[in-house]
């Protein structure tokens, strides 16, 4: 039995639909949670950094600036956390029907991506209401979304395979995400208002999500065209991680299935 492209597309679509359907069964607020969580962190951070530490004050509409980074980050961290279980939770299906197992982690990333897109629409409206009307640079949004989602898929593939072989991976991811959050330009910008020493700056630029976060900030918050290093960094990481993820997954698949 071969898996043609339309057949695979059907499978992906069904798995994504399933994830979306079951996530909010028996939940009163439903999809709103994907917005509420970043909004809540936004409130916490903006109180901390404008009232207590007073460094966010120099950024215009700091609360909205925070949301521009928190929404994509929330997508990223939710996808990686979900991928630790995407093979383990489906082990019964994997052990009784053949289908491309790659579809499982990717479907859970795509389900989160659907949430991200909807949340960004809401964000766009909120920004427009505060006078940040989207400029022509917004046309680059689909591109950054595709690259960012591709990078997340690559990492998810690595994590879900790793977690089958060593259950420690789930714990490591959890800890790492916390550090990663502060090492990424989400609650602060890399350019402009906040002074960062050049050495730290160049180190932070190696961060795979730094490019994406800077792009989201400039598209939504400042309305300017993102710096070119952001595009180079994001594209390299996206292609690199997706390629490595798919290759590793393919290579490990037969032994992972036996290991489950």
């Amino acid at each position: 039995m071969s898996w043609s492209a339309p057949r695979l597309a059907l499978l992906m679509q069904s798995l994504v639909a399933k994830e979306l359907k079951i996530r909010y069964k028996r939940s009163v607020l439903g999809f709103a949670w994907f917005l509420l969580k970043p909004v809540f962190s936004m409130i916490v951070f903006s109180v901390v950094f404008t009232r207590i530490l007073r460094f966010g004050g120099s950024i215009e509409h700091y609360a909205l600036f925070l949301l521009c980074g928190l929404l994509p980050w929330n997508f990223f961290s939710a996808s990686l956390s979900a991928s630790t279980g995407s093979l383990l939770d489906n082990q019964k299906i994997i052990r009784s029907i053949y289908f491309p197992r790659l579809a499982l982690p990717i479907a859970s990333v795509l389900a989160n991506a659907v949430h991200l897109v909807l949340a960004l629409v809401v964000l766009g409206v909120a920004l427009a209401a505060f006078g940040h009307v989207p400029g022509p640079s917004m046309l680059a949004l689909p591109l950054v979304l595709v690259l960012f989602v591709a990078m997340t898929c690559g990492l998810s593939l690595l994590i879900c395979v790793g977690n089958v072989l060593y259950r420690d991976v789930a714990q490591v991811v959890e800890v790492l995400l916390l550090a990663w959050f502060y090492a990424s330009p989400i609650i602060y910008p890399l350019s402009g208002e906040i002074p960062i020493s050049p050495r730290v700056l160049s180190a932070l630029r190696f961060n795979p999500v730094a490019g994406a976060m800077e792009i989201f900030h400039s598209l939504f918050h400042s309305g300017s065209w993102p710096a070119s290093w952001c595009w180079v960094s994001l594209s390299c990481w996206a292609f690199g991680l997706l390629l490595v993820g798919v290759l590793v997954f393919r290579k490990a698949e037969p032994s992972v299935v036996k290991e489950l």
């Binding site: 039995m1 898996w3 057949r7 059907l10 499978l11 679509q13 069904s14 798995l15 399933k18 359907k21 079951i22 069964k25 019964k92 299906i93 052990r95 009784s96 029907i97 289908f99």
Partner: peptide
């Protein structure tokens, strides 16, 4: 017929599960 109903998700209805399994079977 290695294991019956493994692809079923408890929260989905019978019909929804049938469609989902159809996709797994192609």
């Amino acid at each position: 017929l290695l294991d019956l109903g493994v692809g079923f998700h408890p929260e989905l209805t019978g019909a929804e599960n049938v469609y989902l399994n159809g996709a797994l079977l192609g």
